[in-house]
């Protein structure tokens, strides 16, 4: 089987998997980072969203062979030394999660949004987050959390 050395959350990870294996399953089954979720396998739900070189992508639709030397960041790689990012804090302050299953993907999409657009409008948020389904419908609080992280506010829910 081909061997790949991926850069995941700043660390090199040598993996030995089929070339067509989606990054999603390499992360989950081979590397053991299970924060990235499987929801649809068809780039429809966003549960598997990770960053490659800062861009939010769907790990279920990205074969490992296409990752190359791209810097992969997963939900586990956002907090540094246990310090949550302002967006992760806003997620907790606003008590966004219900079941929580979609939230890794939501946070990864929102993180990429704020990196490119630090003060998004509601329309910007709609556009950036439309690819992430939340079956529990936590959308109102996702919006709130993104706004409050953008404004550097602590949650006032």
């Amino acid at each position: 089987m081909p061997k790949y050395t991926l850069n995941v959350n700043g660390e090199p990870k040598a993996v030995d998997v089929d070339a067509d294996t989606p990054l999603l399953w390499v992360l989950r089954d081979t590397i053991g980072l299970v924060g990235t979720k499987y929801g649809c396998g068809m780039s429809l739900c966003g549960a598997c969203t990770v960053h490659i070189n800062g861009q939010a992508i769907r790990a279920c639709g990205t074969p490992v062979s296409a990752v190359g030397s791209g810097k992969v960041v997963t939900i586990e790689g956002l907090a540094k030394n246990g310090e949550l990012t302002p967006l992760q804090k806003a997620w907790c302050d606003h008590d966004v999660a219900q079941c929580g299953y979609c939230q890794s993907g939501q946070i990864m999409s929102a993180t990429a949004l704020l990196a490119s657009n630090p003060k998004p409008t509601d329309a910007d948020i709609d556009a950036a987050m439309a690819g992430n389904i939340c079956r529990c419908a936590t959308y109102p609080r996702i919006r709130l959390a993104i706004h409050s992280a953008a404004e550097g506010k602590k949650g006032v829910e």
């Binding site: 989950r28 053991g32 980072l33 299970v34 924060g35 990235t36 979720k37 499987y38 997963t74 939900i75 586990e76 956002l78 907090a79 949550l84 992760q88 804090k89 997620w91 907790c92 302050d93 008590d95 999660a97 929580g100 299953y101 939230q103 890794s104 946070i107 829910e157």
Partner: peptide
């Protein structure tokens, strides 16, 4: 009162383990 979910930090950091995440 308004009390946040006990697993909020785990969820926000990808550490909450669902059924599908059992290792």
């Amino acid at each position: 009162k308004r009390i946040g979910g006990v697993d909020n930090i785990k969820i926000a950091t990808g550490a909450a383990l669902f059924g599908i995440d059992q290792q």
